[in-house]
Amino acid sequence: MRDTFKLASVLCLTSLVFGCAETPKEFMSLKSKDADDYALDSEDYSKPTRFLYPQKWAKPSGKNNNLDGYLYDVDPNKNVDRLQMLTLASGVKYANPFGMAMNLLMQETYRGSIDATLGEQTLYTVTKFDKKKDWDEQANAVMNMANKTVMAVHGNKAVLSNNGVEHLLLNATEIRNPDNVFCQKNEYFLCNALNVRIPMVLLDNDNYIPMVPQGDYITAQTYLPIGFPIEKLTSINVEGVTQFLYVPPIKENKTTSFWKEENLKYVSEWYKQDRISINPYLKNLNTKEVMYFNPKISAKQKDKYSLYKVFPSSATDEAISKKSVQIK
């Protein structure tokens, strides 16, 4: 979301050449894209990558920003053994084996660079768009569906508010559960789901972008904090509306406040709850299909609805049971 703020500023500065937009329709028009400008060869890129590119504005090129080449998969038992050796050698008084095992994965696999936007966990709510109808009315409709989807996870504890930023490109709806530990600690980006006020409009899609409507379509973009209970997300089940959940690799999460030592204790539990992933995937909430970007990971799924765990439950439990290793 922080990168969205930066992008919004760039868009507004650019628009000064023509006069800065003021109404929701003007901002939507400024933010809209022609689908053919974001077409990727279907023989070279997966459907998830082709779907995500116009949403994230991070073009895959070679190894850079190419999630299809993102692969973290090693023997977890071997990793835990090596982890213990590293812990002893490091001189660190306490270590989290699961976290250290992930550090090993980070060092040994993917070598490309990843844009920060690809580290943002995002819910996409997609439906057809009609340029002849009221733009802001359509924006509000798709935003409300996204809000309801996120609020349903929190149930009667859900709190919805506005972030209070007047600039429409920076304005967003905040959705949170006050009982969340990060909300109680006032960790803004770890507490709130943020639904962007100005949705994305893609124009003239003629099979350029897969899994979305042909012609014009509109997408509400909702940023979900790390640790959000994504396992409870379900489709809003409205005809003509498709919802996708993009789960980034945890290594690429750029929420600086999360990577504090005191917060890493949550990682193991979230992994067991399927709230984080080592390899990125896109999930269709309507069909429940889980689509990994890398075909080697897809090949290891039990079926198209299953998650692939780099660390099986037994290895994860072993790591958790040893998470505090004291060095004398």
Results as ranks from 00 to 15, higher is better:
K6R: 10
T14P: 02
L16M: 12
M28G: 14
K31T: 13
K31Q: 10
S32C: 04
S32Y: 05
D34L: 07
Y38E: 02
A39N: 05
L40N: 03
Q55H: 10
K56G: 00
A58G: 06
N64I: 01
N66D: 06
D68T: 04
Y70C: 02
D75R: 05
K78V: 05
T87M: 10
P97W: 08
F98I: 09
F98L: 08
M106K: 15
R111T: 15
A116C: 01
T117F: 09
Q121V: 01
T122C: 12
K133P: 02
D136F: 13
V142P: 07
V142S: 08
N144S: 14
A152C: 08
G155V: 12
A158C: 11
S161P: 03
N177Y: 04
P178T: 07
C183V: 12
E187A: 13
N192K: 09
I198E: 00
D216F: 11
L224R: 11
P225E: 10
E239A: 14
F244C: 07
L245K: 13
I250F: 14
K251N: 09
E252C: 01
N253S: 04
F258Y: 15
S277P: 08
S277F: 03
Y281L: 10
E289Q: 13
E289A: 07
M291D: 05
F293S: 04
Q326W: 05
